[in-house]
Amino acid sequence: MNADHSNPDHSNDDALTELVERFLDLYKKETVTDVELYCLRYPKYADELRGLLPLALQMEGLKKNSNANAANNEAQTVLFSGPQV
């Protein structure tokens, strides 16, 4: 995926979304693991990326902790109770 950030038709939202998705994809493949290095490559979006990417990674960490917990399933049911049955 090559985000063309010089394209005036490409809205900021779209570009930011694309950059977040790209980071997560690369992170999962372990191609990129450093948030700051990634942010430096996209100075226009760096501030927003610095806020969003660590949060996304923290969410992943929460999942790992949750999976490691023996009471994982019930905890998830309580935390993310979803629709009432």
């Binding site: 939202d13 779209d14 930011l16 979304t17 977040v20 806020g51 969003l52 949060l55």
Partner: peptide
């Protein structure tokens, strides 16, 4: 994808 990033922004 947009829904996901907006949710992240609101969470932040």
């Amino acid at each position: 994808s947009i829904r996901y990033v907006r949710a992240l922004q609101r969470l932040q």
